[in-house]
Design a protein around this nucleic acid. Structure first.
Length: 484
DNA sequence: ATGTAC
């Protein structure tokens, strides 16, 4: 990016003014760092300034430090719209609705699993279905699938797949109340009904990670979040709503394409196809998007159910002894109604986060009691080679970025480009040599997801920490990875 | 991301 063209607001924030292109209603803000800013893709600039042209957008269109180009919105995009004259946009949420992350703590230490890593890898791989088109162990009836997509976390609790503590530590308790199964197509139902409890493919993974004391940045916060020992074993699950959410996104892009004329909506990019939030079509998409979001929460919870089973089988000890507890579960691709101060008064807005994480600061009622005094846990998924990071939400995010921060490392290279650069087998060898056991049903996927295809997670995390929209808690390193 | 092009 030619940063000289733009207004530098602070060491880490660049602003693209409304006169950059015709039709911009608000400026765009690129959150980055002095070292990362030069590599921001021109396509990201084009996309985020297109977002700034959408009707009813408030304050700024944001792109997070891990941003890269996506479908319509950049991945890393955050935008909030008026409920009276704003829009809802599938491209602002993503095809994988509520792609997100669950982080679990355990009572185990690295020494407890060291000798059984291979067995654990194989047992987890056998227990959690993964790969494109994978189906799960659950055979749901249609009425049950409808209940699952409408009640999310609560449905899991009722059916014995979750503990009360799990549900309390999921964003929104794993349930968007707007979910309405009547807005979901038959095609989406048929694609999703047998996919609950499956990992998927692409950048989705299940990982065993270790928190080492020299990489715990804030010991007090880490302890509040349940990371309390040297070399503690943690479990990260990254996946979304599978074919179900994908079909819902596809369905409503078509619906919105057809109704655009009726509402006089013209967008700069067909990928930004939208409908007014308060239109019949917009409300229906919100209802269906909420079903996919809830299904993704259910999906991750069913994977947790499988993870507990696999651990019990490998270690021969009880759930109580294993202590596999949910630290938190966050959505990375979602839109939600939240209240912010606009022009001096509180207003409910539709906040789109596409490759971005909610990052609420201390005191907010949405945060579970256990964490309310410190802020919301933010789970950042790096590449499968480099591990994850745990951060904490801040009041600065609430005030500046509609309670949002980054979601991952951010790709620097397309999947094709990565596959041309290296072979999956070589990535596997390299990971094993550095102590990370890895198993996948699709070897070329390892090349697509290799660490070099992503930005350095420490750089992007340092950027949001410096901006103040989330605070570093701990860096988590992988020791075992199942890549879908 | 995705029954990786109905």
């Amino acid at each position: 990016m030619k940063k000289e063209k733009f207004l530098q607001i602070s060491s880490h924030i660049w602003e693209i003014p409304v006169d950059y292109k015709p039709g911009m209603r608000v400026p765009a803000r690129i959150l980055s760092s002095p070292t990362l800013i030069d590599s921001v893709d021109e396509k990201v600039i084009d996309q985020i300034t297109n977002v700034a042209c959408l009707p009813g957008i408030k304050r700024y269109a944001y792109c997070m430090p891990d941003g890269h180009s996506g479908y319509g919105f950049p991945i890393g995009g955050v935008a909030a719209f008026s409920l009276s004259d704003g829009i809802i946009s599938p491209g602002g949420i993503g095809f994988d609705i509520n792609c997100g992350m669950r982080l679990l703590r355990t009572n185990l230490n690295f020494d407890d699993i060291k000798e059984k890593r291979e067995e654990l890898l194989n047992r987890l791989f056998a227990t959690i279905p993964s790969g494109v088109g994978a189906s799960g162990f659950l055979k749901l009836s249609r009425p049950d699938f409808f209940k699952a997509m409408e009640k999310g976390g609560e449905w899991c609790l009722e059916h014995g797949y979750a503990t009360q503590r799990d549900i309390e530590h999921i964003e929104d308790r794993g349930r968007l109340e707007q979910a309405d199964h009547k807005t979901v197509s038959e095609k989406a139902i048929s694609r999703g009904i047998n996919q609950m409890g499956t990992l998927g493919s692409g950048n989705h993974y299940l990982e065993i990670e270790i928190a080492a004391s020299d990489n715990i940045y804030d010991k007090n916060l880490a302890e509040v979040f349940g990371i309390d020992r040297e070399h503690q074993v943690l479990i990260a699950i990254h996946c979304g709503s599978r074919g179900f959410g994908h079909q819902i996104a596809t369905d409503y892009l078509e619906v919105f394409d057809k109704c655009a004329k009726k509402y006089g909506l013209t967008v700069r990019d067909r990928e930004l196809m939208s409908a007014p939030v308060n239109s019949e079509e917009g409300k229906r998409y919100f209802g269906a998007m909420a079903c996919a979001a809830n299904a993704a929460f259910v999906n991750r919870q069913l994977i947790v159910f499988g993870v507990r089973k696999a651990f019990r089988e490998v270690f021969g000890i009880s759930d109580e002894q294993l202590g596999i507890e949910t630290i938190y579960d966050v959505a990375h691709n979602i839109a939600k109604i939240e209240e912010y101060e606009i022009d001096g008064k509180r207003e409910k807005l539709l906040v789109h986060r596409k490759g971005a994480t909610r990052s609420f600061g201390p005191g907010r009622s949405e945060i579970p009691a256990r964490y309310r005094s410190v802020g919301q846990p933010v789970i950042v998924g790096g590449s499968m080679e480099t591990g994850s990071a745990l951060l904490c939400g801040t009041a600065i995010a609430d005030a500046e970025t509609f309670g949002s921060t980054l979601h991952g490392a951010g790709r620097t290279m397309s999947r094709m480009q990565a596959k041309r650069t290296v072979r999956g087998e070589a990535v596997k060898q390299k990971m094993q040599a550095s102590g990370v056991l890895v198993k996948t049903g699709y070897l070329p996927g390892l090349a697509e997801e290799a660490g070099f295809a992503y930005k350095n997670i420490d750089d992007v995390v340092a950027a949001v920490d410096a901006i103040g929209i989330s605070k570093k808690v701990a860096r988590l390193y992988p020791v075992l990875n199942i890549k879908g």
